[in-house]
Each structure stands twice: as structure tokens, then as C-alpha cells.
């Protein structure tokens, strides 16, 4: 996995531990079963990740998790730009790491 992907996966794990303790393994099992992938799919295809999360937890929970992930990483990225979605967050990370 490349650097940007690693950073995002760590942020997702941290967000899940914080706001949905116990659900990280449930989500990983769901991603494995439906996409045959792990959390790294969030970096490879953010929309696919969001769709998988909303199928498992519901759309609102998916949005909530998305916002927590953004808030966890936004400070670290040092950007003043408004980030409203996981897709925009991944674009920012890709731009920073040139990936």
C-alpha cells in the first residue's frame, strides 16, 4: 500500500475505534465478503467504500463516519480548503503525496 493509503487506513481505524468500538472487525469482514478487499479500498475507490459502509450500517452512519475520518485527517493535511467528502479527502491526500 502506498503512503497516502496507509495514512487513510490508519485514520479510518482510529475513527472506528473511537466512534464505533467493536465494529472495525465487522466492517473488515463485510468488505472482505462483498469486495474481497480491506479498508484500503477507501483510498482506491472512496465511493465503493462509502457504499459498502452504508449497506452495512446505513447511510447516516456512513456519513457520520465519513465526517469523523475527515476531521481526524484535515488538521494533519494542513489545508484550509473545505473538505466535504471522502472523495475530496482522498484527492487532497493524493495531491500531497503525488500519487
Amino acid at each position: 500500500m502506498n503512503k497516502g493509503g496507509e495514512i487513510l487506513v490508519k485514520a479510518i481505524s482510529a475513527a472506528l475505534r473511537e466512534v464505533a468500538p467493536g465494529l472495525e472487525s465487522v466492517l473488515e469482514a463485510h468488505l472482505k465478503a462483498t469486495l474481497n478487499k480491506g479498508l484500503e479500498v477507501a483510498y482506491e475507490n472512496p465511493k465503493e467504500f462509502k457504499d459498502a459502509v452504508s449497506r452495512l450500517f446505513g447511510e447516516y452512519s456512513a456519513r457520520l463516519l465519513e465526517m469523523v475520518i475527515i476531521s481526524k485527517l484535515k488538521g494533519r493535511l494542513g489545508t484550509e480548503r473545505e473538505i466535504n467528502s471522502l472523495e475530496e479527502l482522498v484527492d487532497q491526500i493524493r495531491a500531497i503525496y503525488g500519487e
Binding site: 466512534v19 464505533a20 465494529l23 446505513g58 452512519s61 457520520l64
Partner: peptide, 9 residues
Amino acid sequence: HEIGSDIEI
């Protein structure tokens, strides 16, 4: 509520 509680339903 919390994530996974199906609050929408």
C-alpha cells in the same frame, strides 16, 4: 444512537 443502531429505520 450510535453507528450500527439503524436509527434511520
